[in-house]
Amino acid sequence: MTRPRVTDRARRNRLSRRHRLAADTRATSVVEAAESMVGLHSTTPSTVYLAAWARIDGFTPASMDDALYVDRSLVKQLAMRRTLFVFPRDLLREAVGAVGPRVTASERTNMLRDLRRSEWCTDPGGWIDAARTAVAAELVDGVTLTSSQIRERLPEFNRTVIVSPGKSYGGASPMLPRIINMMSAAGDIVRGPNSAGWHMSRPSWSSMRDWLGEQLDPPDPATAYAAMVRRWLASFGPGTETDLVWWLGSTKAAVRQALAQLDIVEVELDDGSVGYVLADDVVSPDDDDLEPRAILLPELDSTTMGHKIRDFYLGPHGEHIFDRNGNGGQTVWWDGRIVGGWYRDDDTSIRVHLFEKLPAGARRAVDDRANELTTWLGGAQIRPGYPAPFVRGLRGQR
């Protein structure tokens, strides 16, 4: 049978509308924005705020802070690809259930390897379990502590190991922060209050149960994977198996098992590959054309990072935006495609660097949006954690 076809144009239109970037589908709250994106990236502290600014008219950092730290309707969690995301609570359960066991096991394996090489540690597995219990005991009854405070309170576990011996990037590595990362991935503890500004990160840690006021109770991995894949297809689809494996940081086996549990349809994409959509989403009003719009997205934005095979919105510009590890920098979009990047100049203005020539009206719209971002940022000194290759090239020309 001939597969239904979903064109690149239709895919871009879907992303624009479903990712709250189109004028008629803007989000009305930070929770709605995060839900629409199956979580917002937050590895770089400013990213989640700039991602919300791109999707919510009138957005202010205070509304994100309230959701994260006051009513706690959004929660930061280490999840897909060991990346920090901001999730609504229902999505948090699924993310921890699907990704948590895999990341936790990987973190434990890496620690065991390094501890076995350390002369001071005679029982690596027992040491990890004891350290984990000790950290949990410090974070009881609503107590929140920074990583430094935890290390001060647990001197007997504040030990170091040598990683990558003989390498220029090797050296002493403290173990307690790694224990904390493992416990975070497992959903035992969570990033709580941030004592720095919105564009910086200085978190305190809390037990997950105390922070939420209830037990997290994630579903089993198979159920959680199916739920996460369904959400991704509804937001990012159609997409390929390769895209899903990339996005989840998972295995083909896990993705195929999840797809087998869902009512999906295979579709043909413009590059000739096979994509998947939910059965009730083969044809959608979201496929229809919409007015071109200038969009500025931050580094590691969920839209930029949602697919592994990105040509339908990235075109030939990958070398300018993505580094060798697959981290996407700050992007300029026009008519649903990446057409350039942006950066903050020394005078705190937002500057645009286009990778292709745009019509005069489009260029004016891009410049107007850059000016809006300059005004919105004010004096905030945002610093990219993963500068795009084009930014490094510009710096080399100065």
Rank of each mutant, 00 (worst) to 15 (best):
R9G: 13
N13Y: 02
S16R: 15
R17W: 06
A22M: 06
D24P: 04
V31C: 10
S36V: 01
G39D: 05
T43H: 08
T44G: 07
Y49K: 10
F59L: 03
F59T: 05
A62P: 12
S63N: 12
S63W: 10
M64W: 07
D65F: 04
D66H: 13
Y69N: 09
Y69R: 06
R72S: 02
L74W: 02
K76R: 15
M80T: 00
P88T: 04
R89H: 02
L91Q: 14
L92M: 03
L92P: 06
A95T: 01
A98G: 01
G100E: 09
E107K: 14
T109L: 14
D114C: 12
S118K: 06
W120Y: 09
W120A: 11
C121V: 15
T122V: 13
T122S: 14
D123S: 09
P124K: 08
W127F: 07
W127E: 03
T133M: 11
V140T: 15
D141V: 02
V143M: 13
T144P: 12
L145H: 11
S148R: 13
Q149I: 00
I150F: 07
E156G: 10
N158E: 08
T160H: 15
P165E: 11
K167E: 14
Y169D: 14
G171Y: 02
R191I: 11
P193C: 09
A196S: 07
S204R: 15
A224E: 05
Y225R: 12
Y225N: 12
V229S: 05
R230S: 08
R231S: 08
S235Y: 05
F236H: 14
P238Y: 03
G239H: 03
T240A: 03
T242R: 14
K252P: 15
A253D: 15
A254Q: 10
V255W: 00
A260G: 12
L269W: 06
D270K: 09
D271Q: 01
D271I: 03
V274C: 11
Y276R: 08
V283M: 09
V283P: 04
D286H: 09
A294M: 01
G306F: 06
H307D: 03
K308D: 15
F312T: 06
Y313R: 04
Y313Q: 00
L314I: 08
L314W: 11
G318K: 11
H320F: 13
I321L: 13
D323P: 05
D323T: 02
N325E: 11
Q330G: 05
V332I: 08
V332T: 08
V332R: 10
W333E: 00
I338N: 01
R344T: 05
D345R: 12
D347K: 06
D347P: 00
S349G: 12
V352R: 07
H353C: 04
A362V: 00
A362C: 03
D367M: 06
D368Q: 02
N371G: 12
E372N: 12
G379T: 13
R383M: 15
G385P: 07
P387R: 01
P387H: 02
P387D: 02
